[in-house]
Design a binder for these strands. Sequence first.
DNA 1: CCAGACGTTGTT
DNA 2: GTCTGG
DNA 3: CCAGACGTTGTT
DNA 4: GTCTGG
Length: 231
Amino acid sequence: MCGRFVQAHDSVFYADAFHVETIRTDDLPVSYNVAPTDQVYAVAEHDGVRILGSFRWGLIPWWAKDRKIGARNINARAETVADKPTFREPFAKRRCLIPADGFYEWQRLPKGKLPHYIYAADRRPLALAGLWSSWKDPDSGDRVLTCSIITGEPNQLVAGIHDRMPVILPEEDWSLWLDRSVTDPEELASLLTVHPHDRMAEHPVSTLVNSVANNLPECVQPLETGAVEQQ
DNA sequence: CCAGACGTTGTT
DNA sequence: GTCTGG
DNA sequence: CCAGACGTTGTT
DNA sequence: GTCTGG
């Protein structure tokens, strides 16, 4: 799945990488350990214009009575996203790209869990397929923008680590994915295929990343050779 | 009809 | 709001 | 995803 | 075990 990832650049960097025309958010704190309920950058389209905004990670459907439901919706399965009540409308009408320098997956080993950092070999940000929603807090009246990351089968690189991974969209699919006039579920589902692995890389990292309190560059550093055995 | 869920992952 | 279960 | 709590009453 | 918070 995708329960932690990295957004360690500023808004201008992601705006450039995703050909965004309008930045509609302040800069967020740099994060090497983005966790559910954190504010994250995401790219969406409004009136045909590509916009970089800030969204709370964990989709809250517009009809929800309180924000707690969001924590359960950090991911949406590619296999069922078109049918589930929570995700069907966002899938048809409110898709986004969530920039990620890389993401973490935990590998289960006999002696415990070993986190891995997975990223593009050229270190450019990945485009994670996402959905967004706008929810009005009935207490404060505030509008809260939220998002979810779509997960699918792992590619060959990730398969040895975990049985799920975020769906990564190649640049040639970005426009169609963000186009709000496209609502055909079958056409959209055809984009959620396994991403090739030949231009991606991964390495084990310290269990420092396990705690959301640890937000440091060390989270993405390769584990020292030999230290793997101690994990 | 009304009531209650609406989600994913992992673990056992 | 919309679907499922009873 | 992992970590950490998991409870109530009354009093300050 | 299961839920909540981050």
